Amino acid sequence: MGFKLLSKLLVYLTASIMAIASPLAFSVDSSGEYPTVSEIPVGEVRLYQIADGVWSHIATQSFDGAVYPSNGLIVRDGDELLLIDTAWGAKNTAALLAEIEKQIGLPVTRAVSTHFHDDRVGGVDVLRAAGVATYASPSTRRLAEVEGNEIPTHSLEGLSSSGDAVRFGPVELFYPGAAHSTDNLIVYVPSASVLYGGCAIYELSRTSAGNVADADLAEWPTSIERIQQHYPEAQFVIPGHGLPGGLDLLKHTTNVVKAHTNRSVVE
């Protein structure tokens, strides 16, 4: 069995187990497998329904001669939608809004960016022009300005110390501490036991640490421990890039980060 097929099978099995364990909360999309990078042309966006009122959005972007996937989250909030992270750029984010209108038909009224990198804030200006209120932590807003990236308009308070959590509509926002970046936030959907790890969490097929220019490698494993301790009931975990899975993604990420750190020390 090929690795790609095995990865998709694991996603399907995880979703099936969740649907059985929580039949009222989960209505997993039966329309197909989780979209992969090879299936999404740059400039297009796919939506994948995880649970009743919960979707991931998947886009792709060219970077350094390669094409990478990027995940975000959409959560229903009454007759409105909360968006977590842009679709990595203005063109993708405009396509995301169009796809949401086509498939869901509810307005996106608020959006949260989970850290300051372009795959999370690139497209904020498109959201703002569409009347979406954009939010991020003060740290993310400051770092985005320093980096020359787009800056969300509103500040999220109460997320300055490791372990801080605040309720934001249908989700809980959690600051686990520094990891992929010093400002990275985690998003949890309690009604569906869905954990969105953003770039602080890796997919299972990833074996290298990737972009760690703004990471705190020493603190990252401790931050992941905080996530595990705060959300032990999480059933569906979405990484910032690639295929979702279960809580095993947290341990896998820790292993990859520690291996990278150990290699760096040896070198």
Rank of each mutant, 00 (worst) to 15 (best):
A66P: 06
D118N: 08
Y202L: 15
I201V: 14
A111Y: 07
Y196V: 00
F174A: 01
A144H: 04
I17R: 09
H180K: 02
D85I: 00
L156R: 02
E267C: 03
G158Q: 08
H57L: 04
S160L: 11
A179C: 04
V171K: 00
V126A: 08
I50C: 03
S181H: 00
P107Y: 07
W88E: 00
L204I: 13
T114P: 02
P41I: 08
Y68R: 06
I58N: 05
S205A: 10
T253E: 00
V237R: 01
L143A: 07
L173M: 05
A178D: 05
S113H: 13
R226G: 04
T93V: 00
F174E: 00
G131W: 06
L6F: 09
E225L: 12
S181W: 03
S191E: 13
L97E: 03
D214L: 06
T60H: 09
V146S: 14
S30V: 13
I20A: 12
A21T: 14
S30F: 12
D183F: 02
Q61K: 13
R76Y: 06
S62E: 09
V187F: 03
G210C: 05
S27M: 12
S139K: 12
I151A: 06
V194H: 04
G197Y: 01
H241L: 03
D77G: 08
I20V: 14
L73A: 05
K4N: 13
Y12R: 10
A90L: 06
L127G: 01
G105Y: 08
V171F: 02
L247N: 13
Q61C: 05
M18G: 13
S193W: 09
G32V: 11
Q61F: 07
P244M: 09
Y135R: 00
L249Y: 04
V194C: 00
I74H: 01
D79W: 09
S160R: 12
E39R: 12
A95C: 05
Y188G: 01
A165H: 12
N71H: 02
S191R: 11
T60Q: 12
P138K: 09
D77E: 10
L250Q: 00
D119L: 01
T93N: 00
M18A: 14
T93L: 00
E172I: 04
A95I: 12
K258H: 11
H57V: 02
E203R: 01
H117R: 03
S160F: 10
A111L: 06
T261Q: 12
L185M: 06
S30W: 08
L217D: 02
S208T: 14
P244D: 02
L156T: 04
S205L: 09
G78I: 08
A94G: 11
P35E: 07
Y175I: 00
S139T: 13
K8F: 09
G105N: 11
A234C: 03
R263D: 15
F63I: 15
L185T: 02
L82P: 05
L73E: 01
G53F: 08
A179S: 06
S181E: 01
V266S: 15
F168S: 03
D79R: 11
S113D: 03
A215V: 06
K258E: 14
Q61L: 07
R263A: 14
S160Q: 13
D79T: 10
A95V: 11
I40K: 05
D85M: 00
A259R: 13
V124T: 09
N184A: 00
T36K: 13
A98V: 14
V132P: 00
A19R: 13
A87T: 04
N71Y: 04
V256A: 05
H57S: 04
G78L: 08
V42P: 15
D29C: 07
L173P: 08
A136P: 04
H154F: 14
L73F: 05
W55N: 02
N92D: 03
M18P: 07
N149M: 14
D118Y: 06
S16T: 14
G246Y: 05
S30Y: 11
K251E: 12
S139W: 11
R206K: 15
